[in-house]
Design a protein around this nucleic acid. Structure first.
Lengths: 154, 154
DNA sequence: TTTATACAGTACTAAAATGGTACTCAATTA
DNA sequence: TAATTGAGTACCATTTTAGTACTGTATAAA
């Protein structure tokens, strides 16, 4: 399914929530309440996002989380990598020379190109986009066709 | 990581192998040997590909597998769906109204747009592309930027 | 300076998904 | 009729994921 993990989903929702009130400091408990998810799980997610440098935290009373940089500078790829590690479709597209089947594989190169295209796409989507409640119009269906691989096979 | 499952990887490799010799009928054992993977696993993968309508099979002596249609008409999305089910990034982007958190989610719409963009991308990559040992040049880095979401936010 | 608040870090458990295997049945061909 | 080869199902082991608990630490307010 090429599916995101549930925690990644949570992370996106929480990040969007924070992005909608960038000035405030958000306690984990408040966020959990706002998005209707269990507190410990939200807390765990928040810690990962801090570790990845997407959020900043402050301890103590009146503490909480806030964005480390503007929502327009945080990408979907950032959020995904924070939780799941680097965006890569195959084993071999993240490690260097880890796959011993290279000889018989025959699709490695092109899979990696696809992987790169997806990563690039995810890097072009920002948290600001995601947090926007008004759905943005995405004219991707036709344009992507027009720059498809077949057009580039020359 | 947005990673493909290992079986999906196998499927792509096996499909590419078949695509390189479209006339021949390929027995599971031969394919397993060719791609250096365990026979039972390859066999399982092949069955799934048949079920999805990407391969046709023939039993008995001299039987085996062959493509159900030309490699140029089989997409990466087809192969992925055959093994992992529909290409969808989130739970809610495949089922209808399954998620009860819609009210507090706030990112559902835009995630689905991203999901759609990825699906479209994967549908534009064919087995013929993947099987091509000469890597195709993929000018996706810049073009995708130029059709990015931000350009469409107006 | 004490106390309450809130994040950091680690470890653990339970559940689910995944990968891999085995076994029996059915079809085809020589 | 025997050999070959795929179909289908069921099963088990492993890994991954999700979720929880607990202890420690920093901050701020009283």
């Amino acid at each position: 399914m090429l599916k995101l993990s549930r925690l990644t989903d949570y992370a996106a929702v929480v990040m969007a929530q924070i992005a909608r009130h960038p000035q405030a400091s958000h306690a984990a408990a408040d966020l959990a309440e706002a998005v209707q998810l269990p507190h410990p799980t939200v807390s765990k997610t928040l810690k990962m996002l801090v570790k990845a440098g997407l959020l900043e935290s402050q301890r103590g009373a009146q503490g909480g989380y806030r964005l480390a940089r503007p929502a327009s500078k945080i990408t979907a790829a950032d959020i995904i990598s924070a939780i799941e590690g680097p965006v890569a479709m195959t084993e071999c597209s993240q490690a260097e020379g880890g796959c011993e089947l290279v000889a018989t594989c025959g699709v490695a190169d092109n899979w990696q190109r696809v992987s790169l295209a997806i990563r690039t796409l995810l890097e072009s989507v920002t948290l600001a986009h995601l947090a926007d409640t008004a759905p943005i119009k995405l004219p991707v269906q036709l344009p992507i066709q027009s720059i498809s691989l077949s057009a580039a096979s020359a």
